[in-house]
Write a protein that binds this DNA or RNA. Structure first.
Lengths: 123, 123
DNA sequence: ACAATAAGGGACAAATTTATCCCTATGCGA
DNA sequence: TCGCATAGGGATAAATTTGTCCCTTATTGT
């Protein structure tokens, strides 16, 4: 795992939540786990754009940050299940708010995001 | 500006909001602008850990995503003021929810964030 | 005359994150 | 027996983001 050279900024609540939620797939992982997709392979099928490796790394970080819990069943083939901790559950309404805003403004968001991409493509 | 080689995932609301809110300082920029810090130099003083260059870049992206508006006064020395657009205003409650959660769980967050850092330092 | 302030951009370097490839292990079904 | 599914990690490369350094313009204060 990468060892930071520059220490994080931890002044306010926004800094703190940023520390645990930053990561390309973390929010979606939390969401899908909350929806009952507990096993790594299920999560990978839900998020096919992510590489297996990175999902594993981000799951591990979420676990170290105590947002999710991991249970390893000692069977073959291996079986692992994740679930939200209480701490993780407390984040659900917040993620929900993010998702609602995104859904509510879906049209406009797609538009402005794509506009910027096209602009850059023309450079 | 960097031209992406891998296209973004834009399936759901969470993907979309992620596109416009990702960036180390973006959420804090929105927050400070909302609080009335309109001029670039004020924002830089509020966020001294960020480099001038990067703040400028992220401000430009927020503007391109129509979350903030920029007014340039044709005077010398230059004067520029940013403000939230209506679209940006609609995000305030969401950011507020993020900040509240972070503040509410400040102790625990610092603890788990630091624990992980120490663990890595020992590697 | 010189430094400070204001805003911002080009060129480049460094940090950080994400992805690709390959390897481990075991039981099940064709 | 071959191949798949299951979970995951090491080594390494590529993508992406962030930071540093320097340069421009014109006015105000010392």
């Amino acid at each position: 795992m990468y060892k930071r050279k520059i220490p994080p900024t931890l002044n306010c609540g926004l800094d703190l939540i940023g520390e645990v939620l930053y990561g390309k797939w973390k929010i979606r992982l939390l969401w899908f786990i909350k929806e009952g997709n507990k096993r790594p392979s299920q999560l990978q099928r839900k998020i096919p754009d992510a590489s297996r490796r990175v999902l594993n790394m981000q799951l591990k970080e979420l676990e170290e940050h105590e947002l999710i819990a991991k249970v390893i069943y000692p069977v073959v083939p291996p079986k692992v299940e994740y679930s939200l901790t209480e701490f993780g559950e407390s984040l659900v309404p917040v993620i929900s708010a993010l998702g609602h805003w995104g859904d509510m403004h879906g049209e406009r968001l797609r538009s402005v995001i794509l506009k910027r991409s096209e602009y850059l493509a023309g450079q």
